[in-house]
Simulated scan of single mutants.
Amino acid sequence: MILFFGNRPGKKETKVLTNVNCPHCNQTGTLTAVVQPNYAHLFWIPIFTINNIRYAECSHCKKVYHKEEFTLEMERALSA
């Protein structure tokens, strides 16, 4: 019997962080956060989440912040 087991990315969710300043250029409302889960699957059916990829990008200066670089202000805006 052949089992097809692997991982694949889920659907990206984007959210504009409206009242958050970019730490690099100090512009307000230019950050867009992206959250994308990675799933383990069996026969292309998602079984459980392996991890979540999170990052934010400033549309003004194009700086990308990975989840380790998020400020407290970014974390609060994402959870709201």
Rank of each mutant, 00 (worst) to 15 (best):
residue 1 M to W: 12
residue 1 M to C: 12
residue 1 M to Q: 11
residue 1 M to G: 15
residue 2 I to M: 14
residue 2 I to T: 15
residue 3 L to T: 09
residue 3 L to D: 12
residue 4 F to W: 09
residue 4 F to E: 14
residue 6 G to L: 05
residue 6 G to K: 11
residue 7 N to L: 13
residue 8 R to P: 01
residue 8 R to E: 13
residue 9 P to M: 13
residue 9 P to A: 14
residue 10 G to L: 05
residue 10 G to P: 08
residue 11 K to L: 14
residue 11 K to R: 15
residue 11 K to Q: 14
residue 11 K to A: 10
residue 12 K to V: 10
residue 12 K to W: 00
residue 13 E to C: 04
residue 14 T to K: 14
residue 17 L to Q: 03
residue 17 L to C: 06
residue 18 T to D: 08
residue 19 N to G: 09
residue 19 N to A: 10
residue 20 V to P: 02
residue 20 V to M: 07
residue 20 V to F: 03
residue 20 V to E: 04
residue 21 N to P: 02
residue 23 P to Q: 03
residue 24 H to Y: 09
residue 24 H to L: 03
residue 25 C to D: 01
residue 26 N to V: 02
residue 26 N to W: 07
residue 27 Q to A: 11
residue 27 Q to W: 02
residue 27 Q to V: 08
residue 27 Q to M: 10
residue 29 G to K: 02
residue 30 T to Y: 04
residue 30 T to R: 04
residue 30 T to D: 08
residue 30 T to L: 04
residue 31 L to Q: 05
residue 32 T to P: 05
residue 35 V to M: 12
residue 36 Q to Y: 11
residue 36 Q to D: 04
residue 37 P to D: 02
residue 38 N to S: 10
residue 38 N to A: 05
residue 38 N to C: 10
residue 38 N to K: 12
residue 39 Y to W: 07
residue 40 A to R: 11
residue 40 A to I: 14
residue 41 H to V: 03
residue 41 H to F: 09
residue 42 L to A: 05
residue 43 F to H: 14
residue 43 F to S: 12
residue 44 W to H: 11
residue 45 I to L: 11
residue 46 P to G: 12
residue 47 I to R: 03
residue 48 F to R: 00
residue 51 N to M: 03
residue 51 N to Q: 06
residue 52 N to T: 10
residue 54 R to L: 09
residue 57 E to T: 05
residue 58 C to Y: 00
residue 59 S to W: 01
residue 59 S to N: 13
residue 59 S to R: 09
residue 59 S to L: 06
residue 60 H to F: 00
residue 61 C to F: 00
residue 61 C to H: 02
residue 61 C to E: 01
residue 65 Y to E: 02
residue 65 Y to N: 07
residue 65 Y to A: 05
residue 67 K to I: 13
residue 67 K to G: 07
residue 68 E to Q: 12
residue 68 E to A: 09
residue 69 E to M: 10
residue 69 E to H: 11
residue 69 E to K: 13
residue 70 F to E: 02
residue 71 T to G: 01
residue 71 T to E: 00
residue 71 T to R: 06
residue 72 L to Q: 13
residue 73 E to F: 01
residue 74 M to E: 01
residue 75 E to Y: 01
residue 75 E to H: 08
residue 76 R to K: 15
residue 78 L to Q: 08
residue 78 L to E: 08
residue 78 L to T: 04
residue 79 S to T: 09
residue 80 A to Y: 08
